[in-house]
Design a protein around this nucleic acid. Structure first.
Lengths: 334, 334
DNA sequence: CTGAAAGCGCTTACAG
DNA sequence: CTGAAAGCGCTTACAG
């Protein structure tokens, strides 16, 4: 292992002081051109690389932002992270990411790790964790997707409740009176709100919610083949399905195709790859992961750069992208 | 801003030395139970958090691994990163990721940043960058997808050339004599090798490569609607398409569906979400991003833990997953 | 089992 | 424009 070249080494080789070398490194004006050039040449010759850790210790912050999401492998979050990372890297700041997979301890570990590392900022898709401890820590933080527990912070989210209503009304408009619903844990705030929107829309339309075709607290990884087959074979089957989450939509589409029951209407809260290529194409609510990513990182840097205004909420717009599956009319029973 | 609690503060409050507190922090045996408990209580009361930066400076490594890939938002790489991150986080090590988007300066910036940060290890999907400088740096590194320029290192990759042959032969077996091909930059080694496999298989089968239906050096983001429509309307159109990359496959499927020409056979080198749900389902070569991720991170930690064996190459297996689109027979011209 | 001193490689005042 | 000293918060030998 070759020894790292340090500032002292450069200083010695260039017959000047460590401080002057530091000035050259940081593009400080107060160095004569002659000295600067000499030092720069030596840095190159010696292959000097600044030690970020030492610098961070002295300056008090690490040029890193931490991102906590449920799952990096999920295309939605992958795009969101990409958007954040691009913005940060353009500014010379690195990005540390971690997935919680819905586990509380993991969420806590990740966030505490960021604090210990003195990150410049954090972007967090919070789950159940109690965030009261953030009051004692002055690290700029932006939450996405849902508000954190016990802490008032900046939040970027889609309007879940409105979206729930919007999608449901869309189906109702096409004559559907029996709409199946699939959701994961209602403890997740966004899930709860979408479900709430769904129920409200039914109520306004004077439709009743049928427990037989309403599934909540499901594991998103669960295969839905059997469930879909079962409800479509009921005596009084649903004529439409509302999937409030991409993972469910993919499972549902897959299940419907297997039993060739693509005559049932379907609307998905999230968009997903190929939703527009399959037959019929899947109607979705448009809310881009990239837009959430962009908005959250923009706000984060606003705070890093010193903005002191109080926590704000940024709501990302929603609208229906009609592609076919959501516009199938309810088949009237003869 | 509340001041950070330091070891000294804990030492003072617990009437012992900073060193003893450090021992408690690091679970060193040589502390009496009584002292340990007292110190731990005070750490809790004061809300002590270790300063990772200071620790890293002293120990010489930052408990971080750096990952460089072309694009985080690409589902293939998103899964790969997830696999790496899970393994690392289980061991209390953070993951910094960056996308190059095929840009050389970006690749260089990211890798140099990792070196400056003294990361414990790196996993890199290299592009054109000259990696000779790694000889002077002793950071365990594993490459994925393709070998780096000017440097001999560990490599985890799929057998691209073999895969190119395998997929082509599969189509030939079903009677296809005119096979269209779509590839991005041939400067990318894996692209080049897949193309090579394609050409070799054609040659062995005594089929000729037709420039009119062979597209290379394409931008993967390009919309292929017009191109697909054009080649399928040729006087002597291709009866099958070989897509060596997921991004192309998605564009191609989408284009074929738009003009309702799903009668043309298609095989995709990479798998993608929903490939098995659309009609007909898409035949793909199976090589899992997760497997590449697992293998690379396993090897990386083997090196971090001190394995000194010389660079190895790990080849991830490949086989055809028949789903329908690749088994469509060539229509015979009457 | 416990502690005082030195040092990791930088940057921050302070002086000249 | 240039430099000597102190210190960021830890851990590493070394001593007792």
């Amino acid at each position: 292992m070759n020894k790292r070249v340090r500032l002292v080494d450069v200083a010695e080789a260039s017959k000047t002081s460590i401080k002057t070398v530091s000035r050259v490194l940081n593009n400080d004006e107060r160095v004569s051109d002659e000295t600067r050039e000499r030092v720069q040449k030596i840095m190159n010759d010696l292959g000097y690389q600044v030690d970020i850790i030492a610098r961070s210790l002295r300056t008090g912050v690490d040029k890193v932002i931490g991102v906590v999401i449920p799952k990096i492998g999920d295309p939605f979050f992958a795009e969101l992270v990409e958007e954040i990372a691009e913005f940060a890297i353009e500014r010379g700041i690195s990005v540390i990411v971690g997935s919680t997979h819905g586990r509380l301890e993991r969420e806590n570990e990740l966030v505490q790790g960021f604090i210990q590392r003195r990150v410049m900022g954090m972007i967090i898709a919070p789950q159940e964790l109690n965030y009261a401890f953030l009051k004692k820590v002055s690290i700029p933080t932006v939450f996405i997707d849902r508000a954190p527990n016990k802490f008032k912070g900046d939040l970027v989210r889609v309007d879940d409740e409105f979206g729930g209503k919007l999608a449901t009304n869309h189906l109702i408009k096409f004559g559907h009176k029996r709409i199946a619903y699939f959701a994961d844990s209602l403890k997740i705030r966004s899930t709860e709100l979408r479900y709430k929107g769904f129920k409200e829309a039914l109520e306004v339309a004077k439709l009743k919610l049928d427990k037989e075709i309403t599934f909540v607290n499901l594991n998103p990884a669960k295969n839905l083949d059997a469930t879909i087959a079962k409800i479509l074979n009921l005596e009084n089957p649903p004529t439409a399905i509302f999937s409030p989450k991409a993972e469910f939509s993919i499972s549902i589409v897959s299940a419907m195709h297997k039993i060739k029951r693509t005559d049932v209407a379907l609307i998905s809260f999230d968009d997903f790859t190929l939703a527009s290529s399959i037959q019929p194409s899947i109607t979705v609510l448009d809310h881009s992961a990239r837009e959430i990513g962009r908005e959250s990182v923009r706000r984060l840097f606003e705070k890093i750069d010193g903005s002191e205004d109080k926590p704000k909420e940024y709501i990302i717009g929603l609208n229906v992208i009609e592609r076919g599956s959501g516009e199938l009319r309810a088949k009237v029973k003869l």
